[in-house]
Design a protein around this nucleic acid. Structure first.
Lengths: 190, 190
DNA sequence: AGATAACCATACAGGTCGGTATACTCGCAG
DNA sequence: CTGCGAGTATACCGACCTGTATGGTTATCT
């Protein structure tokens, strides 16, 4: 009998989530089967289903975890740079570049959206939340810097950020983030 | 025996490609099996393999066809607007918005890259070519308009274009293309 | 007349998919 | 000492996956 509300917060559950996250990001969601995840995590398939209930739920957990990891990493590394005022926006784009260099498959949420977008998959809400978080982050930085039009400019910089992510990952523009920073500087001058 | 060099340029081949294109775009590459494509196209699986040789080759043909379709549509609708000078860039973003409204699953090449990126799939070359085509298109428009820094500015506008596509499709920014145009206008003023 | 290209229909191979079923062991808290 | 949560192992389900095999039909071109 399936658990009423599966509780993934156990050692095996954690191992499953970590393993699944790596595999999903590297090979795509449909490119990874639950058998492989269970094997790789040193766990039986039954345990996987006892902890997460379904593959869809595991995918949603993967996206949630990934967003949390990224948000924490982003905040931390941004603070480390000690930028002030509108320079924080440029620093944010530098931090994003650093992340992108270590995450060659690009934005996990864009990739996931390409696979599950337009369906009723529980992961879709997480994808939207991640994107809105980044938009709000840029707007927040500009608001804190006292910029008179933080909302509008935040939207524009957010487009540069998303565009740079795509152009960098697809190798259409090798220095996509440098280009994004130059554009952001011009918009800030305005 | 498999054909030495499969020739997809037949009525059945065309039907297969059209059907596969719709399905791949709507459900993703791994989300569609060759059986379904053959059924939907009113063709036997043998014919599909006689025409295209493999699913991977069919996917590459899908991406190539899609790029050609988009490029033709883009050129045509851009010309129809009769914009001149640097206004052509803004018109291009309007045309892109129109396309995006009718193609709810977003950029087929970004989606495909999420599924096959980082592998040796023959579709990867097509994806890169499409992205570089759009970068060159923006640079070309600016060069024709006599802009002194067409290369650099083209790169920046290209990021706005890619970013708007992502933000629009994921619904992170409902008016993503309007925001992109405002940013482009500001960069052009510079 | 003969060859060839372009199809049709059916069947099958060998594997993977998400998900379930059964039966067992271990540690711990009441 | 008993019950339960967390885990093990193995087997199975029906559906689907890419790809091949076999054999037959029709139209066109030389």
């Amino acid at each position: 009998m399936p658990r009423r509300s599966p509780n993934p917060d156990t050692p095996a559950g954690e191992r499953i989530l970590v393993t699944a996250s790596e595999l999903f990001y590297e090979r795509g969601i449909r490119g990874v089967g639950v058998d492989l995840i269970a094997d790789q995590a040193g766990v039986t398939k039954k345990t996987l289903y006892d902890r997460f209930g379904s593959k869809d739920a595991l995918v949603a957990a993967y996206l949630t975890r990934r967003h949390e990891r990224w948000a924490a990493w982003f905040r931390e590394h941004l603070a480390e740079r000690g930028a002030t005022g509108t320079d924080q926006v440029l620093a944010a784009l530098e931090v994003a570049e650093e992340w992108a260099d270590d995450n060659v498959r690009g934005c996990a949420f864009v990739n996931a959206h390409g696979e599950i977008g337009g369906t009723e998959h529980p992961g879709n809400a997480v994808i939207l939340a991640d994107k809105q978080y980044m938009l709000a982050a840029f707007q927040g930085l500009l608001r804190d810097a006292g910029h008179p039009d933080a909302e509008r400019l935040g939207e524009q910089v957010h487009l540069l950020y998303e565009g740079a992510m795509v152009a960098h990952t697809t190798r259409a523009q090798p220095d996509a983030f440098g280009v994004a920073r130059a554009a952001a500087r011009a918009l800030l001058r305005d």
